[in-house]
Design a binder for these strands. Structure first.
Lengths: 200, 200
DNA sequence: TAATTTCGATACGTCTGAGTTTCGCAACGG
DNA sequence: CCGTTGCGAAACTCAGACGTATCGAAATTA
C-alpha cells in the first residue's frame, strides 16, 4: 500500500507534484485577490508567484481560462450553520455570511470577475455559480419556504422575489454602499426592512 | 461672429476636428458595448474603428484611462418623466427606465466595467457615478421622501434602506435573474413586493 | 541500475499593442 | 500666399507575454 496504486496503475516516472498544483491555484487566486483581472492575469506572473516553471502549468491546463475556472471552483461556499429557531434568525445568518465574505479582498475580486466576465468567459461563471452560488441560493430558498409553512412569512409570498429582495439589497450595499466594511448590524437591518415592507 | 472666437482667442492653425473627437468617443463606447473590457481595449482598435489616426487620439488623451473616463462620462442618465400622481407610479417609472437600459448591450457592458473596475481604475468609476448614477439616486430619494410626507410610505421608513431594497432588487435581476430580457411586468412586481414586505 | 516522467529554470521566436516619429495634405489666421 | 497647426496613414522602437523547447536534477517504477 505504501508505494502502490490507488485505482489506476501508476504510469511510472516521477509523479506530478500535488504541492505544485496547489501553489499554482493559490497563486492564481492570490493575484486575482489583488485586483488583477482575467485579461491582465499572465501565466508568467502566476508561475513566478507560485515558484513554479511555466511548463508545470501548461502540463496541467492548456490555457488561462481552464486554469481560472478550476481556481475559482475551489472557492466553495462555507454555508453558515442555521439555528432553525426562526426564519428571521436564519436569514440574518445567511446575510452575515455574505457580509463577512465581502470583507475579504479575494472574495470581492472573485465576485467582480464572475459578475463582469459572464459574457466573455461563460465557462468561468458557470462552474462558479454551480459550486459556490447555487448551494447558498438553495439554502435561502429552503428557509423562506419553511417560513411560509410555519406562518412566519406571508402565505402568498413569491419566493423568488423574496430571495431577490434580500440578496439584492445585500448586493447593493456591497457594491454601492458607503465605502469601507459593512456594518455588523446591516444583515439585521436588511432582514427587518425586507420583512416589514415600505407601505404603512 | 461667423469666423470668430468664442471667449479665448483661437491659437491659429487648423482647429481640432470636433467630428474626430466624437468618432473616437463613439468608437470607444462601441467597442465597450461589444464586451471588450478596459484591459483588452486597445488604442489601435479605437483609432481604426473611428477612422482616425492614433496621433489624433494621443493629441487629446495622454492614456487609455483618461479616454475611457471621458467616454463613460458622456453616458448621461436620461431620467424618465415622473407623473407625480402616486409614489408607486413614480417608483415603477424609475425601475422601468433601468429595465429598458438593461436591454441595451452598451449599458450593460458599461455597468459591468463600472462595477468591476471600481478598485483598479477609481477615476473611471468616480466620474461615471457622479454624472450618471447620482442624478437617479437623487430622483428616487425625492420620490421616497415625498411618499413619507404624503403618507403613502411608512413615516419611520429608513430612506436609504428603501432605496437599497428597490435598486438592489432590480440590480439582482439584471445580473442573476433568468437569462434574456427582463419582463415588462418586473418593475411593477418589484415595487409591489417592496411596498408590501414579506411578513404576514 | 535503467527507463520514464516531472521538476524549475531559462532561452527562444512570435505576436500584439504602446507610444513616437515622419510624411504629405488640409484648414485655418494674417 | 505663408506660417502654423491638425489630419490620417504608415513606419518605427520597445516592452510584455505567449507557448515551445531544452537543460540537468529529482522522483519514481521495474
Amino acid at each position: 500500500m505504501s508505494t502502490q496504486e490507488s485505482g489506476a496503475a501508476r504510469p511510472a516516472g516521477r509523479p506530478r507534484s500535488e504541492k505544485a498544483e496547489k501553489a499554482i491555484i493559490e497563486a492564481t487566486l492570490d493575484l486575482i485577490g489583488e485586483g488583477v483581472g482575467v485579461a491582465e492575469l499572465s501565466i508568467e506572473a502566476i508561475a513566478s508567484r507560485a515558484g513554479v516553471g511555466k511548463t508545470t502549468i501548461y502540463r496541467r491546463w492548456s490555457n488561462k481560462e481552464d486554469l481560472v475556472v478550476d481556481a475559482l471552483a475551489t472557492m466553495k461556499a462555507p454555508l453558515p450553520p442555521l439555528s432553525g429557531t426562526s426564519v428571521r434568525d436564519d436569514l440574518i445568518s445567511l446575510l452575515e455570511a455574505m457580509r463577512s465574505e465581502s470583507g475579504q479582498a479575494r472574495s470581492r475580486c472573485v465576485m467582480n470577475i464572475v459578475m463582469s466576465e459572464a459574457d466573455r468567459h461563460r465557462r468561468i461563471t458557470e462552474r462558479f455559480m454551480e459550486r459556490a452560488v447555487e448551494p447558498r441560493r438553495r439554502a435561502m430558498r429552503e428557509v423562506i419556504e419553511r417560513g411560509i409553512v410555519t406562518g412566519e412569512l406571508r402565505p402568498d409570498l413569491d419566493v423568488d422575489m423574496g430571495m431577490a429582495i434580500i440578496s439584492g439589497t445585500m448586493l447593493w450595499h456591497t457594491k454601492w454602499g458607503p465605502a469601507g466594511d459593512l456594518s455588523p448590524e446591516l444583515p439585521e437591518q436588511i432582514i427587518d426592512a425586507a420583512l416589514a415592507g415600505m407601505a404603512p
